[in-house]
Amino acid sequence: MSYSWSQSRVPVGVGLRHVHYHDALIHPAKLDFVEVHAENFFACGGASIEVLKDVAEHYPLSIHGTSMGLGSDAGIPDHFLNKFAHLIEWTKPVLVSEHAAFTWGELDHQIRHAGDLLPIKFDDDSLTTLAENVSRVQDKIGRQLLVENLSAYITPEGNTLEETEFLSALVDKTGCRLLIDINNLAVNAFNANSGNIASRSDILTSIENWLKRISYDAVGEIHLAGCTPAPAGGIMIDDHSRQVSEIVWEAYRTALNQFGSVPTLIEWDTDLPEWQVLLDEADKARAIASELFSENTQNQKAQSVAL
């Protein structure tokens, strides 16, 4: 499927999961793209591959990896990278993304997979590893990768760089761009309070400060999601099980103001709602972007008239 995104508006997509395949294919929605998880289509053949071919006939695709472990000291095994690259080759997605996380490690002389996205250290050695792996992936797939910030539930000892400093350096070293997950920022900001109740404004300020440290042209995509509220004194888990929270919508406005018309995705992975609910969330993102850029255009016009 060929595609062209207008520079004048924000492309908005939704995460497409198994339960919504039928709805998405029978009643194609006005979406700029849908995102699928790469590993769900690593099979050699069969129904899942045929479904993805059908989906690709109706929507531009974004391929989002969830297991590659770009920050793994152990590297990325060839067998995994080959599957990923093959998928990219035949789906020809509009966006390709993965996480700033590690998943592979050598234990008892065997390369094992953690089965989860685990936090990496923010230091020079880790940056070198991440940059080498990102470059290897980009060389293999022959295109730019978007690297997503992580929601993390432990903080490794010995960080010497701020996360924003670390990710910005990664962009400089590799030519990749960032996929900023605003809910991950919200979750990290909430959990950074170690069980103390973080106020809404504290969290928003934390997110906005984070966003301010990222340069305008480093961002290639934004993820929006909601999650289950944390129990009292507990840790918030980024389970992508709810509508986008108000705080994330608010931070999204800040992000769009700062980064411009960046492709935006609504993520929802557990306790999936009706397909229409996802489309409504996408409409909301589109409305915010439209309102914001319309305001900006009017402000610019007003400024130029005043000048």
Binding site: G105, D116, I154, G158
Partner: peptide, 29 residues
């Protein structure tokens, strides 16, 4: 750090190097 964390998660036990609550999330996951 990396293999240590993987090992700690797989062990399903607490580990002095990692925050207990955070580690438990990864273990449950």
């Amino acid at each position: 750090y990396q293999p240590l964390l993987m090992d700690a998660i797989a062990s399903q036990e607490s580990h002095s190097d990692f925050d207990r609550g955070g580690l438990e999330i990864y273990q449950r996951n």
